[in-house]
Design a protein around this nucleic acid. Structure first.
Length: 706
DNA sequence: GTCAGTTATCTTTTT
DNA sequence: GATAACTGAC
């Protein structure tokens, strides 16, 4: 480890041992380097045993990278060090401790879709209307409550109207259902460890002693439970080292609390604060653009990145007619730059606000036979056929898992419909579904159904027993043969069903991969890995492919040429209608996108865009483009003066922002912006049907209603 | 009661 | 353009 290769600020962060420390690490300022050197220093020079170190990251990939990099720095053995995501560390602790609060160690981790399904059943069980209490918004409400560490009990006692009361009941019902299924959702992985810490002092002390030095990456994105988790572990020793950048806080919608980083010294008195402001990644032009954007935010810690790098090329702005044209122009530009500079495709990164934007680009790249890699979107483990097979594994591991049971009881089709399923699930003797269904005599169902269920239960019992001493991949292979899944897919003989079968085979390969790297592989551990695996972990620099992903996924990455597409008001920034528009977070997101680039940023927007398959809808150029000084942007076509229509200065525009108006055709909507004044004022309206229009006052004939 | 084909509804962002 | 919800045929 060559300490002197660090700059003075980085060195300061690495060498100060003991006591709370917060490092504001701007984009490209060598954050990972500081973290890895710090850990290496703690082990090699301070002599702290690796098993007493906890390092927390947000993605498995970041954790993996950190491990590899520390490994190359350290002389000592790293064995025993704990590096992982908040969720995986939570799960690890819970596998050991959760029996204290009434779950079994073999609990299933439900993903968002599973949890939504469970919430839906909860709503139905309470005889509530699914339209009034729509599962998706209920899920958000419940998750927000959990992230604020509000229990269903507290929520119920604080309810001030019927609606809130019902939501609390749904929350409570959902919690019961999770417990019955011996399952946890993502939020629980953070909350339950804290619950155990609070109620079992000896457990807390054990982990306080184990994790004597705690290091946290991306501290700006921690939410309340994550803060509590870290705080609980470190409150005695105060040996906490947090690294983050408030300008890159982009998970507010997930409960991330930016005040955790901004008020660090309130929680940890005498905290030492270091700012890393030298950027090693980007050109001066890119940094200037990024600065002019992010400095408009009010709630931020004062700091400014600087670099010794060259000024570099100006940013580029591409204006397109529609999303296909946007894709075409971007792909053409990539090919041009690639040829001019003789560089590889892997030096290009395309970023967008929403996953659905990838489609147009994907089509264009495919037509041009250019290799690409999409991160995110429909994830591999979210595919229906993959989830089906995983559901079998889940039921084998956890026979209480209701959601998974419902998924497979009639897959492949064995003549057991909805009606029968709800009959048997409502008559369970215990929470162990498989055991309960060994005898069906007390349930009134047809002979055909009853025989079919018995055969199904026999299979599950047999494989569950075999799983105790057989290699997981071989067991699952046998199971698939038993279920005749291959025939099920391949007899269909459509490309789609062949693809589906291939995905299942890929799943088996991933199971084999897992077995290869594990001493004592179990289905249960494999499931946990799969549940907490993200698409980000698939990023691979070895292939020469163009990479595309959402800006959220791109945090921590860098690329020579970065394309930020779909810069249209309403898409980026995305604007919520009835809540306060959190443009600051959107702006930080734009900042994250800009600072991924090493050599050049290319921005683009389309003048019209389709929503799903609809008619093209006219768009408005993103306000963010105007936040970058014109002299930093190289515009290929000079702006063409718009034709001025002659008009009479008749009526005066009396419309103001935030008013609710009514339009003959579009109906009611909220005024987002008013440009100019008098009869020609341009009024931007977001109609309640989510259509956004910019109308000229004198033609629009608007009625003010609120 | 089951199932295939048809129709409504939806898109931020992710562990 | 994809998935869940709904409907009519067995």
């Amino acid at each position: 480890m060559e300490i002197n290769s660090l700059n003075s600020k980085q060195k300061e962060a690495v060498l100060k041992v003991g006591g709370p420390m917060l490092v504001f690490a701007g984009a490209g300022s060598g954050k990972t380097r500081v973290l890895t050197y710090k850990i290496a220093y703690l082990i090699d020079s301070v002599g702290l045993p690796p098993e007493n170190i906890l390092a927390v990251t947000f993605t498995n990939k970041a954790a993996q990278e950190m491990k590899t990099r520390i490994h190359s720095l350290v002389d000592n053995d790293l064995k025993g060090i704990t590096i992982g995501t908040f969720h995986s560390i939570g799960a690890m602790i819970l596998r050991k401790e959760i029996s204290r609060i009434g779950w079994n160690a073999n609990f299933t981790i439900y993903d968002q879709a599973d949890s939504k399904g469970l919430i839906k059943t909860a709503i139905k069980d309470l005889d509530l209307d699914l339209k009034m209490y729509d599962p998706k918004s209920m899920q958000i409400k419940i998750s927000n409550a959990k992230n604020s560490m509000i229990s269903s009990k507290t929520m119920l006692s604080q309810a001030s109207n019927i609606m809130e009361e019902k939501i609390a009941q749904i929350y409570s019902q959902y919690e019961n259902a999770l417990k019955e299924s011996n399952s946890l959702d993502f939020d629980d992985l953070l909350i339950k460890p804290i619950e155990i810490f609070n109620n079992y002092l000896e457990v807390l002390e054990f982990y306080q002693n184990k994790f004597q030095y705690v290091l946290v990456d991306e501290y700006q994105d921690t939410n309340k439970p994550q803060f509590d988790f870290i705080y609980n572990l470190t409150k005695n020793r105060q040996d906490v080292f947090a690294v983050g950048d408030d300008d890159q806080s982009i998970y507010g919608w997930r409960g991330a609390d930016i005040s955790n980083i901004l008020n660090f010294s309130n929680s940890y008195k005498n905290a030492k604060i270091v700012k890393l402001e030298e950027n090693y990644r980007s050109t001066q032009n890119i940094l200037d653009a990024a600065w002019s954007v992010v400095s408009r935010n009010i709630t931020r810690q004062e700091k400014k990145l600087w670099t010794k790098n060259i000024e570099g090329e100006k940013l580029k702005l591409i204006t397109a007619f529609n999303e296909q044209d946007e894709a075409n122009q971007i792909v053409r530009n990539i090919v041009k730059v690639k040829n001019e500079k003789s560089i590889a495709y892997k030096n290009f990164l395309i970023l967008y606000r929403t996953n659905s934007q990838s489609r147009a680009i994907e089509d264009c790249l495919m037509r041009n036979r250019i290799l690409y890699n999409i991160i995110g979107g429909v994830k591999f483990y979210d595919r229906k056929e993959v989830k089906d097979v995983l559901a079998y594994i889940r039921v084998l591991v956890n026979p209480n898992d209701k959601i998974s049971f419902e998924r497979i009881i009639n897959f492949p089709i064995r003549g057991i419909g909805k009606a029968t399923v709800s009959k048997i699930l409502n008559n369970l003797k215990t929470n162990n579904i498989i055991e309960s269904l060994e005898s069906l005599s007390h349930i009134k169902i047809g002979k055909k159904q009853s025989d079919s269920i018995t055969a199904f239960i026999r299979i599950i019992k047999l494989y569950s027993k075999r799983s105790k001493d057989e290699l997981p991949s071989e067991l699952i292979r046998d199971l698939l043969i038993e279920l005749k899944l291959k025939d099920y897919y391949l007899n269909n003989n459509t490309q789609e069903s062949i693809d589906r079968w291939n995905n299942i085979e890929e799943l088996i390969s991933s199971l084999v991969e897992y077995e290869k790297k594990t001493a004592t592989p179990t289905l249960s551990e494999y499931l946990e890995e799969v549940s907490l695996f993200t698409d980000m972990d698939r990023v691979n620099d070895d292939d020469d492919k163009i990479t595309m992903m959402t800006i959220h996924s791109s945090k921590g990455l860098e690329s020579d040429y970065v394309y930020i597409i779909g810069l249209e008001d309403g898409l980026f920034p995305i604007l919520r209608v009835f809540e306060d528009e959190d443009v600051e977070e959107e702006r930080r997101l734009f900042y994250v996108a800009l600072t991924r680039a090493q050599l050049q940023v290319i921005l683009s927007y389309a003048k019209t865009r389709r929503k799903f398959g609809s008619e093209p809808i006219p768009t408005i150029k993103s306000r963010f483009i105007k936040e970058i000084p014109e002299e930093l942007i190289d515009m290929p076509i000079k702006k063409i003066a718009e034709n001025n229509i002659s008009f009479k200065e008749s009526s005066d525009c009396n419309i103001t922002i935030n008013q609710i108006i009514k339009h003959k055709i579009f109906g009611k909507g909220k005024v987002l912006n008013v440009e100019g004044s008098g009869a020609t004022a341009k009024i931007t309206i977001l109609f309640f049907n989510n259509i956004r229009k910019k109308l000229i006052y004198k033609y629009a004939n608007l009625e003010i209603v609120g």
